[in-house]
Structure formats: C-alpha cells, structure tokens
Design a protein around this nucleic acid. Structure first.
Lengths: 267, 267
DNA sequence: TCAAAAGTGTTTCCAATACACCCATGA
DNA sequence: TCATGGGTGTATTGGAAACACTTTTGA
C-alpha cells in the first residue's frame, strides 16, 4: 500500500493516504433535454458496470469542496448549482451486490498497475459512507469526461438508467425526491434550461420533475405572474402551427424570488 | 492508545478502535413546553462548556442506528421520531474555538484516567465529520441523563441556548430551518405534544416553529378540516373564562396525512 | 381551409383572511 | 355583570382549475 501511495499516479493524481478513509462523495448530476430529465452516469472499464460520478475526500477539504472538484472534473463546469441531499451510511452499502463487481474492480486496478495483491484491495472493499450531492446543469454547456475507473460518461434519461453500483440507484431516487420537495426553493429553470426557452419547455421540465401533468394555460398564467420572465420575439419553428414566444429569466428577480420560495405549489 | 482501548471502560462501554475514526453523530433533540420549543443540551464536567448530545459511530452500525442508540442513552426513549438533516464537514469544524476547550477536554479525560499524554488526545482533536439528526420528543416522557463527558443534561428554550461547542449552534439553526421547511411532512404535533392538548397549544407550537403569528379562528378551522383531530370533553382550567376543548390525534389518519403532506401552507 | 399548437379569456369554486359576534367561566 | 378567552359565523378577496375561444402557422 505504501508503494502505491508513493506513486501518486492514480485517483486523479492523489495518493490513498491523502484521503479520508471512510467517506466518499457521489454526485447526481441532472440535466434536461428532449423533454426529459437526464442524469450523468459512468461506465466502468470492464463489463457492464455503471455508477454515479463520485470520489474520495481529501483530508484537507470540505465535502462541498470535494463535490465541486468532482463535478468540475466530470463536467468541466464550475460555479454550478450543487447541493448536499443525504448521507448514506448502511454498513453494507458498498459491499458488491454481484461477485463480478469485485472482479471487475480488481481487474481494472491490476491493469492500471495500482494493486499488487488482495491486501491492496482493502482500500476499495472496506466500509465507505457516502454523502450525496445533486447538481443542476445546462447539458449543452458540459463536456463530460470519465474518471480513472471508467471509460465512458453518458447522459441517460431517467427511464433508461441501468442497474448501478452499490446503492447508487437509491441515491438517485433520493435526489429526485429532494428535488421534487424543494422545487419551489431551487433554481431549476435557470440551471437546467438554455438561456432562451419556450413556455412549453418550462412546463415540461416541471412536469418531468413532479411526474404529473400541469394544465397548459394555468401554468402559463402562474409563471408570468411571478414576474421573473422576460418575453422575447417569437421563433418560427417550421411547424404548421402558431410559433411560441421565447422567454428568458430576469436573473435578479429570479434570485430574489427563489430566496423566499416561489409560493408556487402543485400537488 | 492500545491500553485505553483494552480497558473498554469509557465511551459508554466501547473502545476507540470500535468506532469509525472520522465520523460522529450529533442530535438536536426538540421538545415543547411552556409555549416554547426546547432543545436538550449537555453541560460538560468542567467549566461552562455546553454541547449537543452526540457520539461516535460503531464500525458495525448505520448512522440511523447510532443516532437511535445515542438518543436512547440521553433520553431513555426509543421509537421516537428521528431524522437525518445534514452532514457538516468543514475541516476546521471541531477545532476548538477557545483554547480552554482543549484544556477542559484534557482535564476531563485525565480525570477519568482515559488518557495518559498528548498522544491520546489525538483521537479527540483530529478532524471529525458530523451528521446531524433531529428528534421530536414529548418532553414529559423523557428522563434526560448526561454522558461520560458531561454532568448535566438540560432542556433549554431556544432563546436561552448558550454558546455551544464547535459548530453546534449552526447545527441547531440548520435543524430548525429544516423543521420549518418540512413542517407539512413531519409529525410535529403527535411527537411534541402530550396525548391531550388544546387548540391553543397546537397553534402556539406552530407559531414557535414558524416564528410567526397565526390567526386564531382560521387556524382552528384549517386544523379541524384536516380530519385528524378527535375532540374530547372540556377541561375546567380554573380561570375566569371559557374552558377550551381538549383534542387528541387520530393516529391512523394522522399518519396517512403526513405521508402525502398536509397541504397546510403558511408563508 | 384544415389541423395543430400557442395565446387569451371566462366561469366556477374553494381557501385564506379579517373580523364580528356569541358563549362559558369565575371573580 | 364584567372581563377574559374560547368557539363559531360571515363577508370579501384572490387564486386555482377547467375549459372555451381565438390566433398563428405550414401543409
């Protein structure tokens, strides 16, 4: 293990001894496109093993800093909306669900010359408590890149999220639940949508989060009454119907409103 | 340190090596009495040092289990409402704010024959991440008892909470904020009030949590319409005015309502 | 001129608020 | 019978919801 530490060639350039021994961060990074919510997942280098982006926490940094660092590494984005939502501490949470998980990890690490025997595996197989963060990002602005354990980084819509490592599916569910409950206190629109969008885009986003249908005209009236939208000229879509207006957010008014909640309740 | 471990005479009977090295639990235990919210705090054995009840986490238990254990030890209660609210991870969060804090801890431990030199202090002074839980309890049912570091266990109303150890005042604030935001999804009434109570008791409880005044008659109508209250015979108070009805909760209906939220919004 | 989707208007209903009024109690 | 506080009723207001009607666009 000492030998591995001294190499400093892995874990994004850090050595094991620089990390807290039992705490990790995992990120549920959410984007919105094609009328559905999407989440960023990593595909591991061997086999069909998927996970949420995550990482270890340096002994010198806070969890917020660690999450920010991880997010930057995976998406290229800084200064995005990022929020802690829950800490998962079940003692068996990172025990492999299937025996091939252990095998895959072992192969990857051996392949990268990072472990020499079973003892080095101890770091990976011991108990880890993970603190979940969720991020809301504008997908168009991201440039996803895999980490040292993975070879692909993909946006998956919620329906097509595969079976994930450890309790990561649970993490995802909890994040979505939190998002739903705190919807009125979160800058969902401004974070997830491009600068200009139609009222339909905005409504579909809310419908995706709340998993419900919202009445078209009432939604429009409510939103406009909040006074945080700026209307721009229409956009000709080429479709055989009336073209929608484009809207953008008035950032200051938006921020002020978010602070005290939109009072915008659906049930 | 080995020697200390083998004694197993402290930390409520456990040895240091049985705990996770960097994680703790702290509990914001809330009760309600005399028209105000109260929180349970511990006074340390020397000097005027106060803290929230908390403890270390066994390597074999989940955080929920640890919190339940700690709560049981401090209040004598099991099966109470307990919920994780946030994980505090600032690297300097448990560095002493005042130099006398370190001294007090040292004295207490030496006095209890638990540490022999500065090296043994390492366990207490290193970085700890704490996960906060809040509990809602019926004060009358508790029998508060101090832990091995403290000599008193006291209910303090929020206005008289003293300066607390480390970031415990922040923990308290965050817990209260969470309570307020999630009010409609939490069993506040049933957890904090005695079996039978007046409508005024209930209203004052909500006012204490929300820090606002609620209109008397409208509050009553709203609450009754929820259909979770059972009205009992009046109670003669001895005061020169009309006696109020007593109410209790219909536990099944209460539980069903809490699940989907009361829809009982104040602003 | 038709279908499709966007924008606007209307009606109905219910909840929240404010406040008035009545009732019970013991001094 | 008076003061005090509890219980109930009512008028007003405003928003939510359902849905109808109009407008715009390209086929």
């Amino acid at each position: 293990m000492k030998e591995v530490d001294s190499k400093k060639m892995w874990l994004e350039g850090y050595a094991v001894s620089e990390f807290l021994p039992h705490n990790t961060i995992d990120c549920v990074i959410l984007g919105y496109g094609n009328h559905s919510l999407k989440v960023l997942v990593l595909k591991w280098k061997r086999g069909e093993l998927w996970s949420l982006p995550g990482g270890y926490v340096l002994r010198s940094e806070s969890f917020d800093q660690a999450a920010t660092r991880i997010l930057k590494q995976r998406t290229g984005l800084s200064s995005i909306f990022l929020k802690q939502f829950y800490t998962f501490s079940d003692p068996g949470r990172n025990r492999p669900k299937y025996s091939h998980e252990t095998e895959i990890i072992k192969q990857i690490l051996q392949n990268a010359d990072l472990v020499n025997g079973d003892r080095d595996m101890d770091w990976f197989t011991k108990r880890f408590i993970t603190t979940g963060y969720f991020a809301l990002v504008n997908m168009q602005k991201t440039t996803p890149s895999p980490d040292f354990l993975s070879d692909r980084c993909e946006w998956k819509s919620l329906q097509e999220v595969p079976d994930l490592l450890a309790d990561h599916n649970q993490l995802l569910q909890k994040a979505l639940e939190t998002l739903k409950i705190q919807l009125n206190y979160l800058p969902v629109g401004i974070s997830l949508l491009p600068k200009r969008f139609t009222m339909k885009d905005l409504r579909l986003l809310y419908e995706a989060i709340l998993k419900t249908n919202l009445e078209r005209s009432n939604f429009q009236r409510k939103m406009l009454k909040l006074g945080i939208l700026v209307r721009h000229e229409k956009q000709m879509t080429g479709a055989a119907n009336k073209a929608p207006y484009l809207y953008s957010f008035d950032r200051e008014k938006y921020a002020a409103l978010i602070k005290k909640g939109t009072g915008f309740y659906f049930d």
